[in-house]
């Protein structure tokens, strides 16, 4: 007999929208560490991942470098934390990376500050991935090294992520990049406020 193929979902369950289910879920929030890797160059990365994606990860890290690196008003304080000759201005970082600074960052850097040089990057990819899930579990981002520990790669928020180049296990939530600088809010939503009547939805 021919098996009938249904045109509807096999299941339609909710876990967040149902209060009891949310309660049950609360107990099992153990975050799993994933295996990714730290590199200094695209070539090192290409030994593990697709070279094109490696270049994209490096470029993303370079772009974020100015945005997330710890900022110091004077060079000496920066060098106390990161070592003599290990600090730079955003303009120097842009020149080193061979990139033009976007207007937004040029504005942010007009005050003149110092930040540690980027020493490597975290790949936004996962090693030994199984089951096709979570292809981008961590965000590619710049890595730094402190003055007193030159072997450990750290994120901009000082979370150690790898001892040297190569694979490492991390919890994705521990390396979520935090943008440095003043936070502005309320930049989205003005059109909704202006057009509040007569619709109740801004979807459709």
């Amino acid at each position: 007999m021919k098996q009938k193929v249904l045109k509807r979902s096999k299941k339609a369950a909710l876990v967040l929208m149902v209060p009891t289910a949310t309660f049950l879920m609360a107990g099992c929030g153990q975050e799993e560490a994933v295996q990714t890797a730290a590199f200094e160059t695209v070539d090192q990365c290409a030994a593990y991942f697709n070279p094109e994606q490696c270049r994209a990860d490096l470029n993303q890290a370079l772009t974020m470098h100015t945005q997330v690196a710890p900022k110091y008003t004077d060079k000496a304080s920066c060098e106390t934390d990161f070592g003599v000759g290990q600090c730079e201005t955003p303009a120097q970082a842009a020149a080193a990376a061979g990139t033009e600074q976007p207007a937004q960052q040029a504005q942010a850097s007009s005050g003149g500050f110092f930040m540690p040089m980027m020493m490597g990057f975290l790949a936004g990819q996962m090693l030994n991935r199984s089951g096709g899930q979570l292809k981008q579990p961590v965000q590619a981002q710049p890595l730094y090294k402190s003055r007193d520990d030159r072997s450990t790669f750290r994120t901009a928020t000082n979370t150690p992520v790898a001892r040297g180049v190569g694979p490492t296990y991390i919890k994705p939530s521990s390396v979520q990049p935090k943008a440095a600088g003043t936070v502005n809010r309320g930049g989205f939503g003005a059109q909704a406020a202006k057009r509040s009547s007569p619709t109740k939805s801004f979807g459709g």
Partner: peptide, 8 residues
């Protein structure tokens, strides 16, 4: 509530 800091 979305925020912006250093362009991010």
């Amino acid at each position: 509530q979305l925020g912006e800091a250093s362009g991010q």
